[in-house]
Nucleic acid binder design. Sequence first.
DNA 1: GTCTATAGGAAGATAGAC
DNA 2: GTCTATCTTCCTATAGAC
Lengths: 178, 178
Amino acid sequence: MHETSLAGLTLRDIATRVGMQQPSLYAHFASKHAIYDAMFEQAWRAFLDYCREAVHDLPAAPRERLTAIAERYFDFAVADLARHQLMDVSVIPGFHPSPQAYAAAVEVYGVMQEELRGVGITSDQDADVYTALVSGLVSQQLANDPGGQRWRRLIPRVIGMFADDLNLPTGHTPRKAP
Amino acid sequence: MHETSLAGLTLRDIATRVGMQQPSLYAHFASKHAIYDAMFEQAWRAFLDYCREAVHDLPAAPRERLTAIAERYFDFAVADLARHQLMDVSVIPGFHPSPQAYAAAVEVYGVMQEELRGVGITSDQDADVYTALVSGLVSQQLANDPGGQRWRRLIPRVIGMFADDLNLPTGHTPRKAP
DNA sequence: GTCTATAGGAAGATAGAC
DNA sequence: GTCTATCTTCCTATAGAC
Protein backbone atom coordinates (compact mmCIF):
# COMPACT_ATOMS: atom_id res chain seq x y z
CA MET A 1 0.00 0.00 0.00
CA HIS A 2 2.88 2.18 0.88
CA GLU A 3 3.80 2.71 -2.79
CA THR A 4 0.50 3.40 -4.50
CA SER A 5 -1.89 5.87 -2.98
CA LEU A 6 -4.49 4.71 -0.51
CA ALA A 7 -7.51 5.52 -2.63
CA GLY A 8 -6.01 3.74 -5.64
CA LEU A 9 -5.36 0.51 -3.79
CA THR A 10 -6.94 -2.53 -5.44
CA LEU A 11 -7.44 -6.07 -4.31
CA ARG A 12 -5.18 -7.26 -7.11
CA ASP A 13 -2.39 -5.09 -5.74
CA ILE A 14 -2.80 -6.62 -2.33
CA ALA A 15 -3.07 -10.15 -3.63
CA THR A 16 0.00 -9.76 -5.82
CA ARG A 17 1.92 -8.40 -2.89
CA VAL A 18 1.14 -11.36 -0.70
CA GLY A 19 1.63 -13.82 -3.55
CA MET A 20 -1.96 -14.74 -4.11
CA GLN A 21 -4.61 -14.40 -6.74
CA GLN A 22 -7.15 -11.73 -6.07
CA PRO A 23 -10.19 -13.97 -5.33
CA SER A 24 -8.22 -15.89 -2.74
CA LEU A 25 -8.41 -12.89 -0.47
CA TYR A 26 -12.05 -13.67 0.08
CA ALA A 27 -11.05 -16.77 2.02
CA HIS A 28 -9.66 -14.36 4.63
CA PHE A 29 -11.77 -11.23 4.40
CA ALA A 30 -15.42 -10.71 3.67
CA SER A 31 -14.94 -7.58 1.58
CA LYS A 32 -12.51 -4.87 0.63
CA HIS A 33 -13.75 -2.72 3.48
CA ALA A 34 -12.96 -5.55 5.86
CA ILE A 35 -9.37 -5.38 4.62
CA TYR A 36 -9.26 -1.64 5.18
CA ASP A 37 -10.66 -2.27 8.61
CA ALA A 38 -7.95 -4.78 9.45
CA MET A 39 -5.27 -2.43 8.12
CA PHE A 40 -6.71 0.40 10.19
CA GLU A 41 -6.58 -1.65 13.35
CA GLN A 42 -3.15 -3.03 12.54
CA ALA A 43 -1.78 0.47 11.93
CA TRP A 44 -3.03 1.73 15.26
CA ARG A 45 -1.74 -1.32 17.10
CA ALA A 46 1.62 -0.86 15.41
CA PHE A 47 1.64 2.71 16.63
CA LEU A 48 0.78 1.53 20.10
CA ASP A 49 3.72 -0.88 20.09
CA TYR A 50 5.92 1.81 18.63
CA CYS A 51 4.98 4.10 21.51
CA ARG A 52 5.43 1.49 24.20
CA GLU A 53 8.77 0.26 23.02
CA ALA A 54 10.18 3.74 23.45
CA VAL A 55 8.76 4.53 26.81
CA HIS A 56 11.75 3.31 28.79
CA ASP A 57 14.30 5.34 26.87
CA LEU A 58 12.52 8.65 27.06
CA PRO A 59 14.18 11.54 28.89
CA ALA A 60 12.74 12.21 32.31
CA ALA A 61 12.67 16.00 32.16
CA PRO A 62 9.15 17.01 31.07
CA ARG A 63 10.17 19.33 28.29
CA GLU A 64 12.64 16.96 26.70
CA ARG A 65 10.26 14.08 27.21
CA LEU A 66 7.45 15.87 25.40
CA THR A 67 9.80 16.67 22.57
CA ALA A 68 10.97 13.09 22.25
CA ILE A 69 7.41 11.81 22.18
CA ALA A 70 6.48 14.35 19.56
CA GLU A 71 9.41 13.31 17.41
CA ARG A 72 8.43 9.67 17.61
CA TYR A 73 4.82 10.46 16.79
CA PHE A 74 5.99 12.61 13.90
CA ASP A 75 8.33 10.01 12.47
CA PHE A 76 5.74 7.29 12.56
CA ALA A 77 3.17 9.44 10.78
CA VAL A 78 5.52 10.77 8.14
CA ALA A 79 7.05 7.39 7.34
CA ASP A 80 4.03 6.25 5.34
CA LEU A 81 1.62 8.68 3.73
CA ALA A 82 -0.98 6.07 2.85
CA ARG A 83 -0.96 4.67 6.37
CA HIS A 84 -1.29 8.14 7.80
CA GLN A 85 -4.25 8.85 5.55
CA LEU A 86 -5.88 5.61 6.59
CA MET A 87 -5.41 6.37 10.28
CA ASP A 88 -6.12 10.07 10.43
CA VAL A 89 -7.80 11.36 7.30
CA SER A 90 -11.04 10.04 5.86
CA VAL A 91 -10.19 9.38 2.25
CA ILE A 92 -11.90 6.05 1.55
CA PRO A 93 -15.37 6.82 0.19
CA GLY A 94 -17.62 4.66 2.37
CA PHE A 95 -15.20 3.40 4.97
CA HIS A 96 -15.73 3.80 8.67
CA PRO A 97 -13.73 1.64 11.05
CA SER A 98 -15.57 -1.01 13.02
CA PRO A 99 -15.88 -0.53 16.79
CA GLN A 100 -13.24 -3.20 17.31
CA ALA A 101 -10.74 -1.51 15.02
CA TYR A 102 -11.54 1.89 16.45
CA ALA A 103 -10.83 0.57 19.91
CA ALA A 104 -7.17 0.41 19.00
CA ALA A 105 -7.19 4.13 18.24
CA VAL A 106 -8.94 4.85 21.52
CA GLU A 107 -6.35 2.81 23.36
CA VAL A 108 -3.60 4.94 21.88
CA TYR A 109 -5.42 8.00 23.07
CA GLY A 110 -5.45 6.56 26.59
CA VAL A 111 -1.74 5.83 26.53
CA MET A 112 -1.03 9.31 25.29
CA GLN A 113 -3.15 10.86 28.03
CA GLU A 114 -1.39 8.82 30.66
CA GLU A 115 1.99 9.83 29.31
CA LEU A 116 0.98 13.47 29.38
CA ARG A 117 -0.24 13.14 32.95
CA GLY A 118 3.22 11.84 33.75
CA VAL A 119 4.69 15.21 32.88
CA GLY A 120 1.99 17.17 34.65
CA ILE A 121 -0.49 17.73 31.84
CA THR A 122 -3.92 16.75 33.05
CA SER A 123 -6.47 18.87 31.26
CA ASP A 124 -8.09 17.61 28.07
CA GLN A 125 -7.55 20.99 26.54
CA ASP A 126 -3.83 20.84 27.02
CA ALA A 127 -3.74 17.36 25.54
CA ASP A 128 -5.73 18.62 22.56
CA VAL A 129 -3.26 21.41 22.03
CA TYR A 130 -0.34 19.02 22.18
CA THR A 131 -1.78 16.65 19.58
CA ALA A 132 -2.76 19.54 17.36
CA LEU A 133 0.77 20.91 17.45
CA VAL A 134 2.34 17.66 16.37
CA SER A 135 -0.29 16.82 13.78
CA GLY A 136 0.14 20.26 12.25
CA LEU A 137 3.84 19.70 11.78
CA VAL A 138 3.07 16.30 10.28
CA SER A 139 0.55 17.56 7.78
CA GLN A 140 2.76 20.43 6.66
CA GLN A 141 5.71 18.09 6.29
CA LEU A 142 3.72 15.65 4.18
CA ALA A 143 2.08 18.33 2.07
CA ASN A 144 4.97 20.69 1.44
CA ASP A 145 8.22 18.84 1.92
CA PRO A 146 7.64 15.09 1.66
CA GLY A 147 10.82 13.23 2.38
CA GLY A 148 12.46 16.32 3.88
CA GLN A 149 13.12 17.64 7.36
CA ARG A 150 11.90 21.19 7.14
CA TRP A 151 9.05 20.80 9.60
CA ARG A 152 10.59 18.09 11.71
CA ARG A 153 13.29 20.50 12.73
CA LEU A 154 10.63 22.77 14.23
CA ILE A 155 9.51 20.21 16.77
CA PRO A 156 11.75 21.34 19.67
CA ARG A 157 10.83 24.91 19.00
CA VAL A 158 7.09 24.26 18.94
CA ILE A 159 7.09 21.95 21.93
CA GLY A 160 9.21 24.51 23.72
CA MET A 161 6.53 27.11 23.13
CA PHE A 162 3.97 24.73 24.55
CA ALA A 163 6.10 23.92 27.57
CA ASP A 164 6.69 27.61 28.22
CA ASP A 165 2.98 28.21 28.05
CA LEU A 166 2.44 25.57 30.72
CA ASN A 167 5.48 26.66 32.75
CA LEU A 168 6.90 23.17 32.63
CA PRO A 169 10.25 22.77 34.34
CA THR A 170 13.31 22.30 32.17
CA GLY A 171 17.01 21.55 32.36
CA HIS A 172 17.89 24.40 30.01
CA THR A 173 17.39 28.11 30.08
CA PRO A 174 14.40 29.19 27.95
CA ARG A 175 15.05 30.04 24.32
CA LYS A 176 14.13 33.69 24.79
CA ALA A 177 14.12 35.61 28.02
CA PRO A 178 11.03 37.74 28.65
CA MET B 1 -18.17 17.46 -4.67
CA HIS B 2 -18.84 18.76 -1.20
CA GLU B 3 -21.23 15.87 -0.46
CA THR B 4 -19.47 12.79 -1.73
CA SER B 5 -15.85 12.23 -0.88
CA LEU B 6 -13.14 13.56 -3.10
CA ALA B 7 -11.75 10.22 -4.21
CA GLY B 8 -15.22 8.91 -5.01
CA LEU B 9 -16.10 11.77 -7.29
CA THR B 10 -17.13 10.66 -10.79
CA LEU B 11 -17.63 12.52 -14.03
CA ARG B 12 -21.26 11.46 -13.99
CA ASP B 13 -21.68 13.12 -10.58
CA ILE B 14 -20.20 16.32 -11.89
CA ALA B 15 -22.23 16.26 -15.08
CA THR B 16 -25.47 15.64 -13.24
CA ARG B 17 -24.71 18.49 -10.90
CA VAL B 18 -24.24 20.96 -13.71
CA GLY B 19 -27.18 19.59 -15.65
CA MET B 20 -25.26 17.86 -18.40
CA GLN B 21 -24.57 14.39 -19.65
CA GLN B 22 -21.21 12.98 -18.75
CA PRO B 23 -19.61 13.05 -22.23
CA SER B 24 -20.47 16.73 -22.64
CA LEU B 25 -17.83 17.57 -20.06
CA TYR B 26 -15.21 16.69 -22.66
CA ALA B 27 -16.21 19.77 -24.62
CA HIS B 28 -14.80 21.78 -21.73
CA PHE B 29 -12.07 19.63 -20.22
CA ALA B 30 -9.59 17.25 -21.77
CA SER B 31 -9.73 14.70 -18.96
CA LYS B 32 -10.84 14.09 -15.42
CA HIS B 33 -7.48 15.26 -14.14
CA ALA B 34 -7.98 18.52 -16.00
CA ILE B 35 -11.18 18.98 -13.99
CA TYR B 36 -9.35 18.30 -10.75
CA ASP B 37 -6.76 20.78 -11.87
CA ALA B 38 -9.35 23.47 -12.50
CA MET B 39 -10.97 22.76 -9.15
CA PHE B 40 -7.61 22.96 -7.43
CA GLU B 41 -6.89 26.34 -8.92
CA GLN B 42 -10.39 27.60 -8.28
CA ALA B 43 -10.19 26.54 -4.64
CA TRP B 44 -6.93 28.37 -4.08
CA ARG B 45 -8.21 31.47 -5.87
CA ALA B 46 -11.33 31.36 -3.75
CA PHE B 47 -9.15 31.24 -0.68
CA LEU B 48 -7.15 34.17 -1.99
CA ASP B 49 -10.32 36.23 -2.42
CA TYR B 50 -11.52 35.08 0.97
CA CYS B 51 -8.28 36.33 2.52
CA ARG B 52 -8.28 39.64 0.72
CA GLU B 53 -11.87 40.49 1.43
CA ALA B 54 -11.15 40.34 5.14
CA VAL B 55 -7.94 42.28 5.19
CA HIS B 56 -9.58 45.64 5.87
CA ASP B 57 -11.56 44.49 8.86
CA LEU B 58 -8.74 42.78 10.71
CA PRO B 59 -7.69 44.08 14.11
CA ALA B 60 -4.50 46.14 14.07
CA ALA B 61 -2.88 44.71 17.19
CA PRO B 62 -0.49 41.94 16.10
CA ARG B 63 -1.74 39.28 18.45
CA GLU B 64 -5.40 39.81 17.73
CA ARG B 65 -4.64 40.14 14.04
CA LEU B 66 -2.84 36.82 13.93
CA THR B 67 -5.72 35.21 15.75
CA ALA B 68 -8.29 36.64 13.36
CA ILE B 69 -6.32 35.43 10.35
CA ALA B 70 -5.98 31.99 11.85
CA GLU B 71 -9.70 31.80 12.48
CA ARG B 72 -10.47 32.75 8.89
CA TYR B 73 -7.97 30.23 7.59
CA PHE B 74 -9.44 27.61 9.87
CA ASP B 75 -13.04 28.28 8.89
CA PHE B 76 -12.29 28.10 5.21
CA ALA B 77 -10.48 24.80 5.53
CA VAL B 78 -13.03 23.17 7.80
CA ALA B 79 -16.04 24.27 5.76
CA ASP B 80 -15.44 21.66 3.07
CA LEU B 81 -13.50 18.47 3.74
CA ALA B 82 -13.25 17.46 0.08
CA ARG B 83 -11.97 20.87 -0.90
CA HIS B 84 -9.46 20.80 1.89
CA GLN B 85 -8.22 17.39 0.78
CA LEU B 86 -7.89 18.62 -2.78
CA MET B 87 -5.91 21.67 -1.70
CA ASP B 88 -3.71 20.27 1.04
CA VAL B 89 -3.63 16.49 1.05
CA SER B 90 -2.67 14.33 -1.87
CA VAL B 91 -5.52 11.85 -2.13
CA ILE B 92 -6.10 11.62 -5.89
CA PRO B 93 -3.97 8.72 -7.18
CA GLY B 94 -2.11 10.27 -10.09
CA PHE B 95 -2.99 13.91 -9.72
CA HIS B 96 -0.42 16.66 -9.51
CA PRO B 97 -1.53 20.23 -10.13
CA SER B 98 -0.29 21.95 -13.25
CA PRO B 99 2.20 24.82 -12.84
CA GLN B 100 -0.58 27.27 -13.64
CA ALA B 101 -2.90 25.88 -10.99
CA TYR B 102 -0.08 25.64 -8.49
CA ALA B 103 0.71 29.29 -9.07
CA ALA B 104 -2.50 30.17 -7.26
CA ALA B 105 -1.28 28.31 -4.20
CA VAL B 106 2.06 30.06 -4.37
CA GLU B 107 0.31 33.40 -4.60
CA VAL B 108 -1.55 32.65 -1.39
CA TYR B 109 1.74 31.86 0.28
CA GLY B 110 3.04 35.28 -0.80
CA VAL B 111 0.01 37.07 0.58
CA MET B 112 0.35 35.20 3.84
CA GLN B 113 4.02 36.08 4.12
CA GLU B 114 3.29 39.72 3.50
CA GLU B 115 0.58 39.72 6.11
CA LEU B 116 2.93 38.14 8.63
CA ARG B 117 5.59 40.72 7.85
CA GLY B 118 2.96 43.32 8.67
CA VAL B 119 2.90 42.11 12.26
CA GLY B 120 6.65 41.79 12.50
CA ILE B 121 7.17 38.17 11.51
CA THR B 122 9.84 38.03 8.87
CA SER B 123 11.63 34.72 9.19
CA ASP B 124 10.54 31.75 7.10
CA GLN B 125 10.78 29.57 10.15
CA ASP B 126 8.31 31.65 12.09
CA ALA B 127 5.94 31.59 9.14
CA ASP B 128 6.28 27.81 8.97
CA VAL B 129 5.43 27.52 12.62
CA TYR B 130 2.37 29.70 12.22
CA THR B 131 0.97 27.69 9.32
CA ALA B 132 1.73 24.43 11.10
CA LEU B 133 -0.16 25.60 14.18
CA VAL B 134 -3.28 26.45 12.24
CA SER B 135 -3.17 23.42 10.00
CA GLY B 136 -2.80 21.18 13.03
CA LEU B 137 -5.96 22.57 14.55
CA VAL B 138 -7.69 22.10 11.21
CA SER B 139 -6.70 18.49 10.80
CA GLN B 140 -7.65 17.56 14.33
CA GLN B 141 -10.99 19.29 13.97
CA LEU B 142 -11.76 17.46 10.74
CA ALA B 143 -10.56 14.10 11.99
CA ASN B 144 -11.96 14.06 15.51
CA ASP B 145 -14.85 16.47 15.74
CA PRO B 146 -16.18 17.23 12.27
CA GLY B 147 -18.89 19.85 12.44
CA GLY B 148 -17.92 20.79 15.99
CA GLN B 149 -15.95 23.57 17.62
CA ARG B 150 -13.64 21.69 19.95
CA TRP B 151 -10.42 22.65 18.20
CA ARG B 152 -11.56 25.97 16.86
CA ARG B 153 -11.91 27.22 20.39
CA LEU B 154 -8.21 26.57 20.94
CA ILE B 155 -7.13 29.06 18.29
CA PRO B 156 -6.69 32.10 20.59
CA ARG B 157 -4.82 29.96 23.07
CA VAL B 158 -2.45 28.50 20.48
CA ILE B 159 -1.84 31.77 18.69
CA GLY B 160 -1.29 33.37 22.07
CA MET B 161 1.45 30.84 22.77
CA PHE B 162 3.03 31.68 19.46
CA ALA B 163 2.79 35.41 20.07
CA ASP B 164 4.30 34.99 23.51
CA ASP B 165 7.16 33.03 22.00
CA LEU B 166 7.84 35.93 19.62
CA ASN B 167 7.22 38.56 22.28
CA LEU B 168 4.62 40.23 20.10
CA PRO B 169 2.97 43.28 21.68
CA THR B 170 -0.61 42.94 22.84
CA GLY B 171 -3.50 44.94 24.17
CA HIS B 172 -4.14 42.42 26.93
CA THR B 173 -2.15 41.00 29.77
CA PRO B 174 -0.71 37.55 28.99
CA ARG B 175 -2.79 34.51 29.91
CA LYS B 176 -0.30 33.36 32.50
CA ALA B 177 2.27 35.44 34.27
CA PRO B 178 5.77 33.93 34.45
C1' DG C 1 -7.47 -22.44 1.02
C1' DT C 2 -6.11 -21.68 -3.39
C1' DC C 3 -6.97 -21.67 -8.00
C1' DT C 4 -9.39 -20.44 -12.89
C1' DA C 5 -13.19 -18.47 -14.92
C1' DT C 6 -16.49 -15.17 -15.05
C1' DA C 7 -20.38 -12.49 -13.61
C1' DG C 8 -21.96 -7.82 -13.09
C1' DG C 9 -21.23 -3.24 -12.83
C1' DA C 10 -19.14 1.27 -13.09
C1' DA C 11 -15.57 4.03 -14.44
C1' DG C 12 -13.18 7.25 -18.07
C1' DA C 13 -13.06 8.23 -22.73
C1' DT C 14 -14.51 8.33 -27.88
C1' DA C 15 -17.62 8.48 -32.19
C1' DG C 16 -20.71 10.71 -34.62
C1' DA C 17 -25.53 12.71 -35.25
C1' DC C 18 -27.82 17.08 -34.55
C1' DG D 1 -21.76 22.20 -27.49
C1' DT D 2 -24.79 18.88 -26.30
C1' DC D 3 -26.68 14.66 -27.01
C1' DT D 4 -27.08 9.13 -27.40
C1' DA D 5 -24.65 5.11 -27.98
C1' DT D 6 -20.81 2.56 -27.16
C1' DC D 7 -15.88 1.16 -26.40
C1' DT D 8 -12.46 -0.36 -23.38
C1' DT D 9 -10.76 -1.16 -19.15
C1' DC D 10 -10.75 -2.20 -14.56
C1' DC D 11 -12.98 -3.06 -10.44
C1' DT D 12 -15.31 -6.07 -6.57
C1' DA D 13 -17.32 -10.21 -5.85
C1' DT D 14 -19.03 -15.06 -6.73
C1' DA D 15 -19.04 -20.00 -8.56
C1' DG D 16 -17.08 -24.09 -8.56
C1' DA D 17 -13.08 -27.39 -9.50
C1' DC D 18 -9.12 -29.23 -7.03
